[in-house]
């Protein structure tokens, strides 16, 4: 095809007459932008200005709030404030630390309110294993559980980690003191010495999780509860 050099003259095809008369405009309305669109644009501009103003005005307050919150957490912003708030209300330092440890090690599965996870993780609130003699929960924390366990008429078949390596006697004592007194539980406190005693008695078996609730019942002679009607997990 022929190639003409580019010039300032229009090279449109067909009968275009536009550039003959700039103001000859047969197709165009006098105002090509519909007024509703202009109205919407105006409204958006007002909204945008207001949003910018209010958001920026609020920002310093937000920054200050963060500092306040950190200060309330005593310089150590614990990532589980609900549990800690509960415990600090009791003004018991030992329990409060137990609550913090509970938040770190236990609440992910057993939940901050001790209710467990339906069908998967047994509750600690109202569990007869938690409120039995202190040896039982100590032994559970040390060795973990791998086998079916019935808590509040529901059988759970999950796995609890073995924690004797992870947690010290003192940490276990603090956690259990908190758990045994939290929510509706009212069993007694646990001391570091009690944990040491149980730990010493289990030296050879520390790495073997308890094979479920029956093993615990047999070992610690927990009073058996009325058998549940079915072995199935209830919703």
């Amino acid at each position: 095809m022929t190639r003409t050099p580019k010039s300032d003259f229009p090279k449109d095809f067909g009968p275009a007459v536009r550039d003959v008369d700039e103001n000859f405009d047969p197709y165009e309305q006098s105002n090509p932008i519909p007024w509703p669109l202009l109205a919407i644009a105006g409204a958006l501009v007002i909204w945008g200005g207001a949003t910018l103003y209010f958001d920026l005005a609020a920002a310093p307050q937000g920054a200050a709030d963060q500092v306040t919150r950190t200060a309330q957490a005593n310089g150590t912003a614990t990532p589980a404030p609900t549990v800690e708030e509960l415990a600090s209300a009791k003004a018991d330092q030992f329990t409060a630390e137990g609550a913090a440890l509970f938040g770190d090690y236990c609440a992910t599965c057993h939940q901050p309110n001790g209710a467990g996870v339906r069908g998967a993780i047994p509750p600690l609130d109202g569990s007869r294993y938690v409120t039995a003699t202190s040896e039982v929960p100590i032994a559970i924390l040390l060795r973990g559980i791998a086998g079916p366990i019935e808590v509040k008429d529901v059988v759970y078949d999950g796995r609890m980690p073995t924690l004797h390596d992870t947690l010290s006697n003192d940490q276990i004592a603090r956690i259990l003191t908190y758990v045994r007194g939290a929510w509706s539980n009212s069993a007694g406190a646990v001391t570091s010495d009690q944990v040491q005693t149980v730990r010493a008695g289990l030296t050879d078996t520390l790495n073997q999780p308890w094979q479920g609730g029956s093993a615990l019942e047999a070992t610690f002679d927990i009073p058996s509860t009325p058998a549940s009607p079915t072995a199935e997990a209830k919703p």
Partner: peptide, 9 residues
């Protein structure tokens, strides 16, 4: 905040 708000607007 300001850059977020700018993008929101």
């Amino acid at each position: 905040t300001w850059v977020v708000t700018l993008s929101v607007v």
